[in-house]
Design a protein around this nucleic acid. Structure first.
Lengths: 126, 126
DNA sequence: CTGGATCCAATTGGATACTG
DNA sequence: CAGTATCCAATTGGATCCAG
């Protein structure tokens, strides 16, 4: 369960707030592009344009949008070098690295089950 | 990286197919509702209506849609009891349980970082 | 109760143009 | 190069109705 259930407590309100926050964070993070960006970053430091080519198929818009989100949540750090042309680098923060571990696990899971799933789909009828 | 990179191999085509399959599976699974349903199921067996109340805020449509997807990929098993009214139960399969482990980790990560993230957001300016 | 189908509003996301 | 803004098509998702 993402949101632990609390009730009858003295500061029930605070706890409900934490719950809704948890759900909000989960919703931010549990999306395809965010996870792919995190996986692409890994423990490296990449420029915007590098990320764009590392994350296959992502559009300019989706990349900036998700990078802002990761930055806002403190999962990725943005460093702008005041050069011309501009050079902006992104890297995962501590919490971001923690999430990376689970994304790695998810990718590993995916690869371990490609064959199973492929067959399951055929059995399902496609 | 979700899709391992291969090239120059004799059966390059097969490998590219596995890659695109991996990406497809990842896209199916890396979405809010799918992960919340998996987390709600855990190692239990739940009816459609039970799932609907366990997964806070999910609509009838999103639930059926995601359950079909999980079933199609062989991550959840559907058992229809031929009673009236119908009783349909869902449970995670072996691969589904494997994925559950990573979702659990992700939920744990979320709870561990609620405070960090809450503060990061404030620093970011909201 | 489960679940498919449809309608329709709201959101998403890509393409493009423009700025520092 | 990095990033924002806009336009617009396509997709999403909720509400509702119907059926087994």
């Amino acid at each position: 369960m993402v949101t632990k259930q609390f009730s009858g407590s003295a500061d029930e309100a605070d706890l409900r707030r934490a719950d809704s926050l948890a759900r909000e964070i989960f919703s931010d993070v549990a999306n395809k592009w965010a996870l792919l960006i995190i996986e692409a970053l890994g423990d490296r430091t990449l420029r915007f344009s590098e990320l764009r080519s590392e994350v296959e198929g992502i559009s300019h818009k989706m990349l900036t949008q998700n990078l802002r989100m990761l930055e806002r949540n403190g999962l990725a750090a943005r460093t702008a070098h005041p050069t011309v042309p501009p050079r902006v680098e992104y890297t995962l923060t501590g919490p971001g690295r923690g999430l990376l571990a689970t994304v790695d696990a998810m990718c590993e899971w995916t690869h371990r089950h490609i064959a199973d799933i492929d067959e399951a789909r055929r059995r399902f009828g496609d």
